[in-house]
Design a protein around this nucleic acid. Structure first.
Length: 467
DNA sequence: TGGGGTTAT
DNA sequence: ATAACCC
């Protein structure tokens, strides 16, 4: 149904396609270095975005929920909902009361425990890694995959008569004509076919539906993946990239420009993508710093050279709980114990060992709503060693450490009012922390010189809490 | 606004 | 340790 046949070469480039198509691209070209032979190699990137992920996981857990308007609730918020609920006016991050008012039949399930979502999320990433190992996670429900190599391999397998029959899978953004003589088009079409295979595999093996966007970089792939929504895919051909980015109504919609930067841009009179494109680079650099300024101004042109960075296993494990009020040490200790118990189970399953522990709090305040404070310290090595086994004997000493961190942040002799507690285990190392006794010990600079010489190693720069 | 994550400074 | 970004 989404299938569209590639247009004949003569028709290609009816609008703006004339410019980029020429640069000497024979279909047999091998090395991905097309744009005239200079500049960065052209990539093929796919962004995979699951449809209302938490709601999908809940409907798999309990099939009776299918077909009903479903919301996933955390505290007093509906954090996400299925499409039945959306049709009836429920929005993401809507207040539970507003949602129930809009949609009295709304079924709510509690989604504060992320365990099943996290597990399913990694199954998706692992499935995508089977296609190509270069997979970058973005949250629990989005992944980028660099398809450049896979596409090249497939093209080398193609016979010339198959090439003329190449078709796109899914939508073509802006309904742009496909030029089968344009190697960039060809490669993106192959990318669209791989994207379709990925979505098929996700559905067949995991029962999950989602969208995909195929383009020449992460920014464009992400933007184009959301064009046709649920369970569809779209490919962006280079000649339509300006149409895509100009379709954004505000710079805040550009991934990479967040709340703070958008506010600062607005203060400069910049609100549209065009405003940002045409704003003085010099002034922008002075206002935002050269790094942010250059990066976001490139984004405004649809340029994004950031690589797809393989996420691999997580860098940290954290659990948090928010509440209206927590104002005594006993309450704090109880909450911390709960958070830590779950974390120890997770870290145990992972196999690696955290070498740093952090406590994060949010204090009650009328204005400054989002700000958090944290304290961290190294985990004593005798505790690290016991981590894999029965964690009963580590929970008490770790809670003691966390309470010290807490008292370092909060003067418990004075009244306090917290609205969030979070514990984070990070600085994860693969079991053998010290390579002492191995040949690596003498070959690893940070171990064999810096650490032993008594100088501060860059690997050991945790803040020191007296224990 | 929840309950997570990441990287840069 | 914080601040920014992402979901």
């Amino acid at each position: 149904m989404e299938q569209r046949r590639a247009g004949p070469a003569e028709e290609a480039g009816g609008d703006e396609a004339a410019e980029a198509g020429e640069a000497g691209c024979s279909p047999a070209a091998a090395a991905p270095e097309e744009p005239g032979g200079l500049g960065p190699p052209a990539r093929v990137i796919v962004h995979v975005d699951l449809d209302c992920f938490y709601a999908q996981v809940e409907m798999i857990s309990n099939p009776e929920l299918k077909g009903k308007p479903l919301g996933v609730q955390q505290k007093y918020l509906v954090v996400t909902c299925n499409y039945e609920a959306r049709k009836l006016g429920v929005k993401k991050l809507m207040n539970v009361r507003d949602a129930k008012e809009k949609c009295p039949q709304l079924v709510l399930v509690n989604g504060e425990d992320l365990t099943r979502y996290r597990e399913m999320s990694y199954k998706v990433t692992e499935l995508l890694e089977e296609f190509s190992p270069v997979v970058e996670r973005l949250g629990f429900d989005e992944n980028f995959v660099d398809l450049t190599e896979m596409v090249e391999k497939r093209l080398q397998q193609l016979q010339s008569d198959e090439l003329s029959a190449l078709t796109v899978s899914g939508h073509v953004y802006n309904n742009q004509y496909i030029n089968l003589h344009d190697i960039l088009h060809i490669r993106l079409l192959v990318g669209s076919q791989i994207a379709a295979e990925m979505r098929e595999a996700m559905y067949n093996q995991l029962g999950l539906t989602g969208c995909a966007g195929v383009a020449s970089n992460k920014l464009l792939a992400k933007l184009v993946s959301g064009v046709f929504k649920p369970n569809q895919q779209t490919v962006l051909l280079p000649e339509s990239s300006q149409v895509l980015i100009q379709s954004l109504n505000h710079v805040k919609e550009m991934p990479g420009i967040g709340y703070k930067t958008a506010k600062r841009l607005e203060a400069l009179g910049i609100s549209s993508v065009y405003d940002l494109q045409t704003f003085s680079s010099k002034i922008l650099e002075k206002e935002l710093g050269i790094s942010v300024a250059q990066r976001i101004q490139k984004l405004s042109f649809g340029e994004d050279n950031s690589p797809v960075t393989p996420s691999g296993p997580p860098q940290s494990f954290s659990e948090e709980d928010s509440f209206k009020k927590c104002s005594s040490e006993v309450e704090v200790k109880n909450k911390i114990e709960e958070l830590l118990a779950s974390l120890l189970n997770r870290v145990c399953q992972d196999g690696r060992k955290p070498h740093t522990i952090r406590l994060i709090i949010r204090r009650y305040s009328s204005e400054n709503h989002c700000s958090r404070e944290s304290r961290q310290c190294p985990i004593p090595s005798h505790i690290i060693q016991k981590l894999g086994t029965g964690n009963c004997d580590v929970i008490t000493p770790m809670v003691d450490i966390l309470m010290k961190l807490f008292r370092n942040m909060v003067n418990v002799k004075m009244p306090f009012h917290l609205t969030l507690l979070s514990v984070c285990l990070c600085n994860l190392k693969a079991l053998n922390t010290s390579k002492k006794g191995t040949i690596d010990y003498y070959l690893t600079p940070s171990l064999s010189t810096t650490s032993r010489s008594g100088k501060r190693s860059f690997k050991m720069k945790d803040s020191h809490m007296e224990d």
